[in-house]
Design a binder for these strands. Structure first.
Length: 769
DNA sequence: GACCTGCTGCGGCATG
């Protein structure tokens, strides 16, 4: 070990490095050590998951603390997951074994003794979640100054998971309050593997001077094996309904697919059909083909299969278990891991992954973040995700070390053409999205973070927290700590006062004669609940139990009746009892079953992704990573797009309606729908197009002209939104304020107006010719 | 048309 950086470290830290048998420091560690030890400013470290980021930050931090011990927490590590904190706790304890720097942890599963010990004699490093830091303000407000008086560093792990999220704004607010309460001036260190524009992360760490944040990035690109395989759902060969010019293309498509499926077919279909209890799932479909493909490729190594919906993962796991059973194999390598499974079930799966035995885990975003699960051979993705960031993050789980190969396969499923197929369906939009996301990922584009949102729900959360912490504050003091010096700088004084009056109206807060604001009965009750610590919303759930074991959870509105079967954790269960009082569903092992529904709020697709779909449709260039079926479907979609006119003009004029493909992301699309609603035009939408009912070409052009000239404000449009509350405390905020935030956060007037002007230009040229 | 994350303090009792 000859590095200059190494010589800067404390002797005890050097000792710990020798004990671990490290021969060299990683490049990012050698670069980080002097920057931290010599006392420069904030820092952002971006490198692969296994690139040694944690050590890069903590080797010099521990050295600094060891040279200057204080009776205050000197370094905070903030992690998004309890499991991650437990992982890192062990690593840091090893690093600190030869120096006198205590390591503490504080989260919901940490013991009361651990927490008391930290409170009684604070010092060294504390690993904590944002919610537990919040609990410090609520329960130990008076002790904050003592516990954190000499705080020097705040390390935020998986920083990308906090950028522009409710949880991230919450965290920023807590850090600002901590600085205000203690007068300390900590240096911030952000760690992340997936950063789009580093400037957003810089602004998160230092909103007033983002340019001062030093960026250290890991080197070394990965070799990548990437492929997209296309499948059709509910295959049908009835083509009599299609326009004549298209039949040839589509026959090619289906011929191609039939051969393709026959070649890949695994004898799963006969097994399922022989099962008398299984009348609901006897049909062979595209999922069986996908299962068979996976089965052949996942016999060895550690693999992850990501999905977008828990339900689809459960169904696929069930098919894979059945396929293993029918193959006569005693070893079933398939496991399920998602947020609705119990901690015990998930920990068991994590242990199998860590053991290094061959295992393939079907998971949602629960395994996206850096829990150490060892090396992943291949990542698969069932259906394209919604964002490039998600595709990138998931791909990064494979081939995590330099020199390794990252392998990823996306299984894309579209509806098979049938008599009632819409034009949108015939463009195979899910395959298009998969290709668009991949193209953007290869071009190193990621969705930008939206730092301009108001986050009024989280502001409400922090107002309540401040009043709980202090017992009462003036509105000026609240404004100063949360807005002027805090995380809600986009909120104006007028909006802030509006939020305060809203809270008064619903009895969350009240004003006492001195002018101070205090919690009113509703506010007292909300903040006394354990559920309060998190700033994000959560729904009521029932626990699913089999004998003494907790299997997982179901949304309370979606609990099936007694006697019905469900699939959970990739296994089949029958509901034998439901206890509403203790919110528990009791189950026994069963043979039948269908996967339960889990309902979420839906996501957001960026303009750039939809634009890329349009570019791919317009182009003739070959996409090398598509399988035969995907190539055939893309060829067919391109021909369909060209001949139907949705590329050039973007619209199709019918007898009494117009179908328009505006090629906009979620916000712009919703803006166009609201424009029509404001004008009293009835519309129907699918994922790519809006159809204007009972509208002739002339009327539609007038409507476009109105959108194009931007006469209606976004606020006017937001007033017509059907759903207006999205986050935890939105219900407490006046409608007019919600309209104002929704107009900023959920609509895109500029893109909608711009595309309306362009389309109107095309429409006029057609009218003239 | 989706996913994920998080979480007290205290009284009472048994044990060493």
């Amino acid at each position: 070990m000859s590095s200059q950086a190494f010589s800067l470290l404390h002797r005890g830290v050097q000792e710990a490095i020798f004990k671990r048998g490290w021969k060299e420091l990683h490049a990012i560690q050698a670069e980080t050590i002097p920057w931290i030890i010599e006392g420069h400013g904030h820092l952002l470290i971006s490198a692969h998951t296994a690139g040694g980021k944690t050590e890069a930050a903590f080797l010099p931090i521990i050295s600094t603390l060891a040279n200057n011990p204080r009776s205050s927490v000197q370094a905070l590590y903030i992690g998004p997951l309890v499991a991650l904190i437990n992982d890192q706790f062990e690593r840091l304890e090893t690093l600190c074994s030869d120096v006198d720097v205590p390591v503490h942890r504080w989260h919901g599963s940490a013991s009361a003794t651990e927490k008391r010990k930290l409170r009684d004699s604070p010092g060294g490093i504390l690993l904590i979640t944002p919610e537990s830091l919040e609990s410090n303000f609520i329960n130990y407000g008076k002790h904050l100054r003592r516990i954190y008086a000499d705080l020097k560093f705040i390390v935020i792990d998986e920083l990308h998971s906090f950028l522009s999220s409710v949880r991230g704004v919450h965290l920023r607010s807590l850090i600002a309050r901590l600085v205000a309460a203690t007068g300390c001036n900590p240096r911030l260190v952000g760690l992340s593997a997936t950063l789009g524009d580093p400037n957003h992360a810089r602004s998160f760490l230092a909103p007033d001077a983002p340019e001062t944040v030093k960026l250290i990035t890991g080197k070394g690109d990965l070799t990548l094996q990437f492929g997209i395989k296309a499948y059709l759902h509910n295959e049908s060969k009835d083509l009599g309904y299609l326009p004549r010019w298209h039949i040839g293309d589509l026959y090619n498509t289906l011929e191609g697919l039939t051969t393709f499926q026959a070649k890949e077919k695994y004898p799963l279909h006969s097994v399922l059909q022989n099962d008398p209890d299984d009348s609901q799932s006897v049909t062979t479909d595209e999922l069986d083909d996908i299962a068979s493909h996976i089965l052949h490729r996942c016999k060895d190594h550690t693999n992850l299969i990501f999905g977008n919906a828990k339900q689809s993962l459960e169904v696929l796991a069930d098919r894979l278990h059945a396929a293993v059973k029918s193959s006569g194999s005693l070893q079933d390598p398939f496991h399920v891991h998602h947020g609705s499974l119990s901690k015990e079930v998930r920990e068991e799966t994590e242990a199998i992954l860590k053991s290094g035995k061959p295992a393939t885990v079907l998971c949602s975003s629960t395994l996206e973040m850096g829990i150490d699960i060892g090396s992943v051979w291949r990542v698969m993705q069932l259906d394209a995700p919604w964002t490039v960031a998600s595709l990138r993050q998931r791909m990064g789980r494979s081939g995590r070390r330099e020199g390794q190969t990252a392998r990823m396969c996306v299984y894309s499923r579209d509806d098979s053409p049938h008599k009632k197929s819409s034009l949108t369906d015939l463009l195979f939009p899910k395959l298009l999205r998969a290709i668009a996301l991949a193209e953007l990922m290869f071009s190193r584009w990621l969705e930008p973070h939206d730092g301009d949102r108001f986050h009024l729900s989280t502001l409400v959360h922090q107002i309540l927290s401040c009043l709980r912490e202090t017992g009462g504050m003036s509105s000026e003091a609240l404004f100063s700590i949360l807005i002027n010096r805090g995380a809600f700088r986009k909120v104006s004084k007028r909006m802030f006062l509006g939020v305060l009056s809203s809270l008064g109206e619903c009895h969350f807060i009240e004003q006492i004669p001195t002018g101070e604001l205090i919690l009113a009965p509703e506010g007292e009750s909300v903040t006394a609940n354990r559920d309060f610590y998190a700033a994000f919303a959560s729904s009521e759930e029932f626990i699913v139990r089999h004998d003494e074991n907790e299997i997982g959870k179901l949304q309370s509105s979606l609990v099936p009746p007694i006697g019905e079967d469900i699939i959970l954790g990739g296994r089949r269960w029958r509901v034998i009892d439901v206890h509403s009082t203790c919110k528990t569903v009791f189950v026994s092992v069963s043979e039948g079953g269908k996967a339960p529904l889990f309902r979420g709020p839906g996501g957001e697709i960026h303009n750039r992704v939809v634009d890329e779909m349009h570019i791919i449709l317009s182009s003739d260039s070959e996409i090398p990573y598509l399988d035969g079926a995907a190539q055939t479907l893309l060829k067919s979609a391109r021909a369909m797009a060209r001949q139907s006119g949705v590329l050039s003009a973007g619209f199709i004029v019918r007898d009494n309606s117009i179908q328009w493909f505006p090629w906009l992301g979620t916000r712009g699309f919703l803006t166009l729908e609201l424009q029509a609603r404001c004008s009293g035009i009835a519309t129907e939408s699918d994922i790519l197009s809006i159809t204007y009912r009972n509208t002739n070409f002339q009327q539609w052009q007038e409507h476009l002209s109105l959108i194009g000239c931007g006469e209606r404000t976004a606020l006017e449009l937001a007033k017509h939104m059907k759903i207006k509350t999205f986050e935890k405390f939105d219900e407490t905020i006046r409608e007019e304020l919600l309209d104002e935030t929704n107009s900023r956060d959920r609509l895109d007037l500029a893109s909608a107006s711009s595309i309306a002007r362009k389309t109107l230009f095309h429409a006029k040229s057609i009218s003239h010719s």
